[in-house]
Design a protein around this nucleic acid. Structure first.
Lengths: 229, 229
DNA sequence: CACCAGATTAAACACTCGTTCAATCCGCTC
DNA sequence: GAGCGGATTGAACGAGTGTTTAATCTGGTG
């Protein structure tokens, strides 16, 4: 298989131009953020700004098309990764393959800017984490929590937010290779402290936690509010 | 004390206008992000766009003045909080006082956008965390780490990044009161999972950590690179 | 009072942005 | 081959942006 959703489908004429514009937009949005002008993207795709709005209606339409494309590729890749078993380091292995680098960068930009895709992405991450953590609990390798949903959300927000902030402060890489290298360095910085914290915790005694539990004996109580946020 | 660096100094004539413009800019930047036009800020301050660049040279000059002001207030408040002893929940208590809400929001916007103030702020947070964690280690309430610097940076990035992402996805509040309420809800969502993770960890056994330590026996080795990043 | 420096304003400038429009090009069908 | 519809273009529009400029106002000084 020469192209599986990432590279633009080569069926001549049909979606050649539209796909080329969309992929160029993803790459350019990922590299320079969502404030780039339509003319820059048009130049990247070798077309005119007018043609973009002819095909996508508006810049926001282009943005939505990019979101859908990235989400589609993410779902497809995730489905493939599940058969391989190692789905946890999904983003990591996506960053390894240079072809996916622009999409990962695009996702980081989306999380940074907020919006619908960002919310959807976080929900995906939370759902995945919920699955893995539940399986881990059942297998006896993950400690149970007093409020599993809250812990899952906490871990997802911390992981995603920390990653976005790290890349924000370490400068946007220009090429896909640079991004892959930077991503590997991020994992290097992350792995030891993360594993340490996850296996040994941070505090020696449990006085702080017990004090909090005494002061706020709030049960999980699965309120409807948690679903919306 | 009627005004301690937060409210614009009332010494008539002198810095009245400049301070008013700067404070209006901080509030407006905090509320709507850094993309707002000078005319909007000017209208908030009751002046003209031209006057702003007359006093601050350019929009970037205004931005720098805001950064310095926020940083100055942060330092001052931190110094005061140190005498009270409870410096850990610095941002929390700052958000409680409605007067500080725009500044905290401004800091979040800065972290989201990146730039010099964001880098400085993260360095501050890392330095503070380093201090508290070291003290905790010495007092025997914080577990030692195989790489203390890396752990400190990890915790700072996760905490700050998670907070920024949370507020990004939960919509920017319009008023200072709303922000305070939202901040309190954020702490509520955060506290239990955080304390749980910090006191009990996440994993039951240490096989993952040991495996990593075996695979990558990299010592801390305090390389010069860590200082710059 | 004359004068001057700084504060302040309204208007204009130059630029970029997303979007619109009329015109052209190209491939297909009758 | 005529004609049609979509792809594509280049230019223009209108609304924004940050910045500049000339003019006006104002308060203190000689």
């Amino acid at each position: 298989m020469a192209s599986a959703g990432v590279a633009p489908v080569d069926r001549d004429g049909e979606f050649a131009t539209v796909g080329r514009i969309r992929d160029a937009a993803i790459a350019r949005f990922a590299r320079d953020g969502f404030r780039v002008g339509l003319r820059t993207i048009a130049a990247d795709a070798g077309v005119t700004a007018g043609l973009i709005v002819h095909h996508f209606g508006s810049k926001d339409g282009l943005r939505r098309a990019c979101d859908e494309q990235v989400l589609a590729v993410l779902r497809e890749t995730k489905a493939k990764a599940l058969t391989d078993g190692s789905g946890v380091t999904l983003l990591a292995q996506m960053a390894e393959v240079e072809r996916f680098a622009p999409m990962v960068q695009y996702l980081l930009r989306s999380l940074q800017a907020g919006g619908e895709l960002a919310a959807t992405l976080i929900e995906h991450m939370i759902a995945d984490a919920e699955e893995y953590l539940s399986a881990g609990e059942a297998a006896g390798v993950v400690r149970p929590s007093r409020d599993r949903a809250a812990r899952t959300r906490y871990l997802a927000y911390q992981a995603a937010g920390g990653m976005v902030l790290w890349f924000t402060l370490h400068g946007a890489p220009a090429s896909a290779d640079e991004f892959s290298a930077l991503f590997r360095r991020y994992l290097d910085d992350l792995m030891l402290p993360g594993l340490e914290l996850f296996t040994e915790g941070l505090l020696v005694d449990r006085s702080m936690l017990d004090e909090y539990l005494m002061y706020v004996p709030d049960p999980p109580s699965g309120d409807a509010d948690n679903a919306a946020r």
